[in-house]
Nucleic acid binder design. Structure first.
Lengths: 127, 127
DNA sequence: AATGATAACGATAACGATTATCGTTATCAG
DNA sequence: CTGATAACGATAATCGTTATCGTTATCATT
């Protein structure tokens, strides 16, 4: 039985109001002023719970995990310059799931695409 | 100046001869009998070197990284049942890179697709 | 073949992100 | 209002990975 919690509300609300794919620690420091008693463990706990509830997406781009409050189908680019993550919106999923299901014998539930390269700003700086 | 090393050869050879996407530790234990003095640090060191040399692919599916000696374009499925990783071969990349380049202002170097679901064996068991 | 510079090694300490523990607090059905 | 317990905060523990450091192996140059 899942109970209501102010902390979980605040975490989800904060995450959904931003588009910079914060880490658990980013969220922690962002919420600390509003909820001084907040613990980092609580942020991790709730992020993983929100993920299993399908309300949040974890982007496991190596080292530190980042989170996204937008659960609609879209992809990400991990920038080699600033090591940030930016959204990549395509019109469709290119039929990736159907093609994959034809080529193998198991069950596909979801998929994620992670591009590697340089974001708009870092691209300009490199010329 | 990169020097030759028996350990690196053995790691690459072992990785390329198998299709189970082993972790660094898997490779370590697999090679230990043949090279008793091998250190786990050496395995990590060489895997990351082989990765930057483009001879190996790191699959950063959350927790523990797995490695793939097949550097040709193909994708992976992370099985929710056995938590293994299996290959997904598609005929093409569905034009993913071109579509993404049109929809955003930066530079794309590569991409990876990770499907989530159940492998052939785990699918059958679930019926 | 011997030499010397240094890349790579092995062992292990350090690191950092995440998870587990545990006593306390907040939620909520009865 | 009350009791059961989900969730909390603080912090210790875990675990994959990286850094350190003294030693060894590689290899271009004698």
């Amino acid at each position: 039985m899942q109970r209501h919690s102010r902390q979980r509300d605040a975490i989800l609300e904060n995450l959904c109001s931003r588009y910079d794919h914060p880490t658990a620690e980013d969220l922690y420091f962002s919420l600390k002023p509003k909820i001084p008693a907040l613990s980092l463990a609580t942020v991790y706990r709730n992020l993983s719970q929100l993920e299993t509830d399908g309300k949040v997406i974890r982007i496991g781009s190596g080292g530190t995990a980042r989170y996204d409050g937008n659960v609609n189908l879209h992809y990400h680019l991990s920038c080699l310059g600033c090591s940030g993550v930016v959204d990549i919106f395509l019109d469709d999923d290119c039929g990736l799931t159907e093609k994959a299901e034809k080529s193998f014998d198991g069950t596909i539930i979801s998929h994620s695409v992670l591009f590697t390269g340089y974001c708009s700003e870092c691209s300009k700086q490199l010329g």
